[in-house]
């Protein structure tokens, strides 16, 4: 079992009127990439600010490498490369000036790694900060975060506003860092990008952790779902009798959605030869679906209790 790098224990930051984060429990292990999903205003940024030691918790605490974040903020940040949600650079002329200033702050004299990332991202840092596009600013921010080669990387919605190509380039870099063994914590409200990169994803809703999904399990789910539409209504009705696990029935379109194991797959296709099938498509079980299922289940439980 790898060691925990970031531990969040019963963390609560109450801003009043129900806003804030409540009883957050989360652990990041060394070398792991944890995604943080949630809608706007669900508490992602607040959690990250607590990890960085910018906010004082109402109760509970966050620990980075065993040190309490609020008390030891200036020490823990040295292990972390942080890309903030809003890109705001200090009042300096160019990207190069900013990166030089950051290097001074971090005490780095060897800029080779920074230059490597700059080249990888195809960034020209000589441009004036004020005139940079969102994509350039984001890249500059990433260089600033990674230049000290930190072991922990925290990213707060880093791809918001980037076009798909940029986003892909960015995610590639993150994946490369992850492959090197870095511990990464990334928040986003786009499930797709978390799916492809993270080991686990925590869903936060209204300040509470709703669920923590393990991507391996989702990707390698034993059960698959298929949607089949039949040409003839008679075929449709006949198929319904064959005993497959029907999880969704749409008679108006002669569609059924069934859940089968991978072993049953062959048998299904064998059976379908007897029918006139309009189309068959796999309903992929992805993170979004997973979370929706979890949330619906919760809602059911709640209404049942009431």
């Amino acid at each position: 079992m790898t060691e925990p790098v970031i531990e969040i224990k019963d963390l609560t930051k109450d801003y009043g009127e129900g806003r804030g984060i409540f009883d957050i429990n989360l652990t990041l292990y060394k070398g792991e990439m944890l995604g943080f999903a949630g809608t706007n205003g669900s508490g992602k940024t607040t959690t990250i600010r607590n990890i960085m030691g910018f906010l004082q918790p109402t109760s509970g605490a966050a620990y980075v490498k065993g040190l309490q974040t609020w008390k030891h903020s200036s020490e823990i940040v040295k292990f972390i490369g942080y890309v903030p949600g809003e890109i705001a650079f200090p009042d300096l002329p160019t990207g190069t000036a900013f990166l030089k200033s950051q290097a001074e702050f971090l005490g780095i004299s060897d800029m080779s790694y920074a230059e490597y990332i700059i080249e990888k991202l195809q960034l020209d840092p000589r441009a004036p900060l004020k005139r940079m596009s969102k994509g350039m600013k984001q890249k500059t921010a990433i260089v600033a975060a990674l230049m000290a080669n930190p072991e922990i990387i925290i990213l707060d919605e880093p791809t918001t506003g980037l076009d798909p190509l940029m986003r892909d380039a960015f995610l590639e870099i993150i994946k490369a860092e992850h492959a090197k063994g870095k511990t990464i914590f990334m928040s986003s409200h786009m499930f797709e990008e978390l799916e492809t990169t993270c080991d686990r994803v925590a869903l936060i809703r209204d300040g509470h952790i709703a669920d923590i999904a393990i991507l391996d399990e989702i990707r390698n789910r034993k059960i698959k779902e298929y949607k089949i539409e039949f040409v003839e209504e008679s075929d449709y009705r006949r198929f319904k009798e064959t005993g497959y696990d029907i999880i969704r029935d749409q008679p108006q379109y002669c569609q059924v959605t069934i859940a089968i194991t991978s072993e049953q797959l062959n048998r299904l296709f064998h059976d379908l030869k007897e029918y006139q099938v309009k189309f068959i498509s796999e309903v992929k079980y992805n993170l979004e679906k997973h979370f929706k299922t979890v949330l619906n289940r919760e809602k059911e439980i709640k209404t049942n209790v009431q």
Partner: peptide, 8 residues
């Protein structure tokens, strides 16, 4: 954030 996250 940049100043504080550098360890100052």
């Amino acid at each position: 954030a940049y100043i504080l996250s550098s360890g100052t």
